[in-house]
Every structure is written in structure tokens, then in C-alpha cells.
Write a protein that binds this DNA or RNA. Structure first.
Lengths: 144, 144
DNA sequence: ATAAAATGTTACACTATCCATAACATTTAA
DNA sequence: TTAAATGTTATGGATAGTGTAACATTTTAT
């Protein structure tokens, strides 16, 4: 799953959980609504759970619930929860005998450039909440 | 080759061509300096040639030359020359019977968001010229 | 307590993509 | 005319991604 696909899938799931809040939904139920394999959803949701975006409970009548209000969940934290690798990733040259100072110089330059870009992307996402998205898409939700 | 690797490799090559300007350099020569396979370099350089960033001449004593001054070559045009796909690419769901209006809604939302991000990245790159980079890295070049 | 049912994680076969290189057709200048 | 360069296609091996299954672990309802 690409970073962008993971992000959009996560948002779809979270919007669904916001709509049906506070009813816990199992990965199987979500799978049927979203159309993504339940096992894969569990992997995604387990990461969101570790960052306290959703709350999971096991056992009978368990499932997943939003752990905070949609206006407190931002795209940036979703993105960081599901993606450790950066959006722009430089495959720096393997260090061998042929690597000279010049190569190191270039690699550092692009590493910095891509880091800058990354920061800008995350800044943009930091100001978009789940509530923003649902409002924009005309999805009603109930919370608290 | 990832987009970022193609970009940094291209810049390395272009800097080298700027340094030795106006002497044509063959893909084999460049390969030995940059440490990237000559065939792969030709593929990259052929794309740069189509966007008039380098000029190629075939035959004996042929090779590649910068086609304009380093201060007129910007990262954005290099990036566009070598990469058709966007940096952020949404794998939109295959359209089947299960795809409902909701899915289309989400896909459009993220398509727009990623397009915005793409524009910002390109804007950033539009203001970085090859000359900027060479100055910053302390690489002297001769042109015209 | 026990069993049912959920998450969380690992494993796996299959596929697709990537990558380095080779091979060859095409072009061009000496 | 020929040598030598680019431009493009092909290829085989490695690598990564995908969808799914399997199973251990946890937890609640009875």
C-alpha cells in the first residue's frame, strides 16, 4: 500500500467510525463497508491505535472506536501513525570505495531539500482535521 | 529508480557537464565519474534532451552538452523532464460494483489534496537553479 | 471457568516492480 | 565508409508489494 493509499483508506475508516460513534465496529464490519481486506485493516488500525487515534477492544462485542473528537484528529498525525518512511525518500548511494566527497555533498544537499519538502507537506496536513474533511464532503457525524 | 534518486542523479550529471562545458561528454565518461551505469544514464539524458536541458550529438566525438546556462536550468523542469508520475500518487480504487458514491467522493478529495501538495513542491523547486546548487556546494563552473 | 470472538502479528505464496546490464538499431561525423 | 556515439528494447535476477490465511493472545458474555 502506498503512503497516499494508506492515508486515504485510514481517513475513510475514521470517517466511518465517526459516523457510527460510539458503536464499536469490528475489522470485518469495516472491511465490508470500505472494501479493504480485514487483515490489512487490522494492521492499519493497530498503528492508529498505538498513536491513540482509535481505541481497540478485543473479545466478544469488541472492535474499534474513535478515541477522540473528529476536530482533534488531524491528517498529519494520521500520516505519521501509519508511515514511518518519508514521502520523499532519497536512496543515498551505498558507501563504497567509489564514493567521493562530491557524492556525499550532493546526498546531503538533497537530504536537506527533501526534509524541507517533507516539513511543508506535514504543515499542510497539520491544519486539516477529520471534522474539516467530513464537513467538506457533507458527511454527518455524531460525537459526544 | 525512485523520483528523488533520478532527480539527484540528474543534478549530479548536469553539474558535471557545467564544469566541463562546452566539452561533450559521452555516457561512458559520465558513468565513470558519477558511478551510474551508462545505459541508465542514456535513458535519463535522453529525457533531459527532449526537454532541451542537454543537447546530444551522436557519432564520433559526440556526447552530451548543457543546452543552456546553469542559472536558466531549474529543479522543477528537471523534475518534470524525468518524472511523469506525481510525487504523491493516489491509487484510486478500481471501479467495480462495490464502488459507491462515498468512495468517489473520497478519491476526489485526496486527488485534489495531493495535487495541491504537488504544486507546492514544484513551486519550491522552480526557484532553485543549477547555478544556485553549484554555488551552495562550492562547485565552480564555466559557461559561455 | 469456559467458550466464543475479537485484535495483533506472523507467515506465505503469488505477483508486480525494480534494476543492472546487454544487445542492437539508428544516427552522425571524421 | 566506418567507427563511435546515442536511443531504445529486451532480459534475467533480485526485491518489494499484495492479498490472504493462520494462529497466538486477549477479553467479554454467559
Amino acid at each position: 500500500m502506498s503512503a497516499s493509499t494508506k492515508l486515504s483508506t485510514s481517513v475513510k475508516v475514521l470517517c466511518y467510525l465517526a459516523e457510527v460513534h460510539p458503536m464499536p465496529k469490528t475489522s470485518k464490519m469495516i472491511s465490508e463497508v470500505i472494501g479493504v481486506n480485514a487483515s490489512k485493516l487490522r494492521k492499519l488500525l493497530s498503528m492508529l491505535s498505538k498513536q491513540n487515534i482509535v481505541k481497540s477492544t478485543q473479545g466478544i462485542s469488541g472492535g474499534f472506536v474513535l478515541s477522540k473528537n473528529p476536530d482533534l484528529i488531524h491528517l498529519q498525525e494520521i500520516y505519521c501513525a501509519i508511515e514511518d518512511r518519508k514521502a520523499f525518500h532519497l536512496n543515498v548511494s551505498k558507501l563504497n570505495d567509489n564514493v567521493n566527497d562530491r557524492t556525499v555533498l550532493f546526498n546531503n544537499y538533497f537530504l536537506n531539500l527533501f526534509a524541507d519538502v517533507q516539513v511543508e507537506i506535514e504543515d499542510k496536513m497539520r491544519y486539516i482535521s477529520l471534522k474539516n474533511i467530513m464537513n467538506e464532503l457533507g458527511i454527518r457525524f455524531y460525537y459526544k
